[in-house]
Computed example of a mutant assay.
Amino acid sequence: MPGQRQRAGGAGEKLEPVVADAVARAGFELEELAVQQAGRKQLVKVVVDATGDGENSVGLDEIADVSRAVSNALDASDDVFSGAYTLEVTSPGLDRPLTKPRHWRRARLRKVAVKQADTKFLARVGDAADDGVELLVDGQLRRVAYADVEHAVIEVEFSEPPAAEIAKLTHEEEGSR
């Protein structure tokens, strides 16, 4: 599937196992690691996400916990990474591309913009499996394989989604679930 975890080059490649382990021990998943020179220091940017498919998210307290864990791991890894650094730990923003099944599961019932090879469309997310997702496109349910999605992001909505769309995606019309 396209869009697996973004890997850091250079110093980041050596750091990735150290940082990923610290993030995992704190109970989260490393989404992205980037290391770049920023004056005399290096900027270490760590993007973390909650593990699993649940509705949980990464809050400020959790970011602080991960930041301490990563900082301690970096300080203890002088053989891999030394010198002054600035650590930035964050969670993915709303504009993060949907690249993994768990991203799609968390986006259930949300509106998304999807780009495939030769088409773009807006859809509402239904059930997501390991290989694809059910989308409501122009009132019709459509099964889309993740491999066929070039890019997808959540669209911000300022009002409640239409009840009829939610009913179709939750199969309320059929009386199931």
Rank of each mutant, 00 (worst) to 15 (best):
A34H: 13
A76G: 11
G54K: 11
R25H: 12
N72G: 15
A34M: 06
Q37N: 15
P17M: 08
G59W: 06
Q42T: 12
A84W: 12
I63C: 01
S82T: 01
V66D: 05
E13Y: 13
A26R: 09
G59V: 08
S71A: 10
F81L: 00
A38P: 01
G10Y: 11
D49T: 04
L60G: 10
K41N: 14
V46S: 05
D65G: 13
E13I: 10
A38V: 04
G39R: 01
V47Q: 06
L60Y: 05
G39Q: 03
V19T: 10
L74S: 01
V46T: 00
T51Q: 15
P17N: 09
G9R: 15
F28G: 09
A20M: 00
K45I: 12
L43W: 08
G27H: 10
F28Q: 09
S82P: 08
E62T: 03
N72W: 14
A26I: 03
F81P: 10
V58A: 03
R68Q: 11
K41H: 14
A22Q: 03
L43R: 04
V58Q: 01
K41W: 14
E13T: 11
G39H: 09
S67N: 06
R40P: 12
Q37D: 14
L43Q: 09
I63A: 10
V70C: 07
A34S: 14
S82D: 08
V48L: 07
I63L: 08
S77R: 01
G59N: 01
E13P: 12
